[in-house]
């Protein structure tokens, strides 16, 4: 455990909190991609299957991981519920049109060709890493199509991108401090792809933030 890992997890929690706050405060889900959130639900379901293998109290780290895994699963499913049921009449269906099967297919192919190991659990785990890397794409497309982005929505995406950026720093840290960690090439590949997808968004976010204006995507 290092400071980058903790900062990353904290940003991840904050991003989900901002998203829920935005939806509950405005009682709408405009500007939020249901497709991205459903992809995250699949990501957490396929990655956290080890919740069924026990060992929750083996160490402080196991306990910490278990609590956060449950939190991510519950909050993501709650968001999907808000989008599908409670605020469904405000959902931007006509703009949220990214072809998700394409992403699922690409992640599945990568997971079968380059899994961390050839076991069912490891293939699913690798699938979740590749899928998480691209899960933000429907959300970015939706924002581009609607033009101006609400502040809270832009903060949400910024925190989500910063979370994975912190994880990359955490991996660099672990590369030098933990020799057993160096073979995690799935994590490296997926993490770098994911962080780079945010680069464009970060650029516009910081630019408009500096000018004190609402974010507009070209």
């Amino acid at each position: 455990m290092n400071v980058f890992r903790i900062a990353g997890d904290l940003l991840h929690c904050i991003s989900i909190f901002i998203l829920l706050h935005k939806m509950r405060k405005t009682r709408t889900c405009t500007g939020i991609s249901r497709k991205t959130l459903e992809l995250y639900a699949i990501v957490f379901l396929t990655r956290y299957l080890d919740l069924f293998t026990g060992g929750y109290f083996d160490s402080a780290l196991s306990l910490y991981n278990t609590v956060l895994k449950l939190l991510f699963l519950a909050s993501t499913f709650y968001c999907v519920y808000l989008l599908r049921v409670k605020y469904r009449h405000t959902y931007d269906r006509s703009h949220d049109t990214f072809r998700v099967p394409f992403l699922l297919g690409a992640a599945a192919v990568l997971a079968f060709i380059f899994p961390q190991r050839y076991t069912i659990l490891e293939i699913l785990w690798s699938f979740s890493q590749y899928l998480e890397a691209v899960a933000i794409l429907p959300q970015l497309l939706l924002l581009q199509r609607t033009g101006e982005v609400e502040n809270l929505t832009s903060h949400y995406i910024f925190c989500l991108g910063a979370y994975r950026g912190c994880y990359v720093l955490n991996w660099i840290w672990r590369f030098f401090t933990d020799s057993t960690y160096r073979g995690q090439y799935v994590t490296w590949t997926a993490g770098l792809i994911q962080t780079s997808l945010y680069a464009d968004f970060f650029y516009y976010y910081l630019k408009y933030k500096k000018q004190g204006r609402a974010l507009k995507l070209p």
């Binding site: 890992r5 997890d9 991840h12 080890d50 780290l61 991981n65 956060l68 895994k69 991510f72 961390q116 190991r117 490891e122 785990w125 994880y167 955490n170 057993t180 960690y181 160096r182 073979g183 995690q184 994590t187």
Partner: peptide, 10 residues
Amino acid sequence: SNMAHKHDEL
């Protein structure tokens, strides 16, 4: 090398 594949992150 078993350790290398122990997933201890989120």
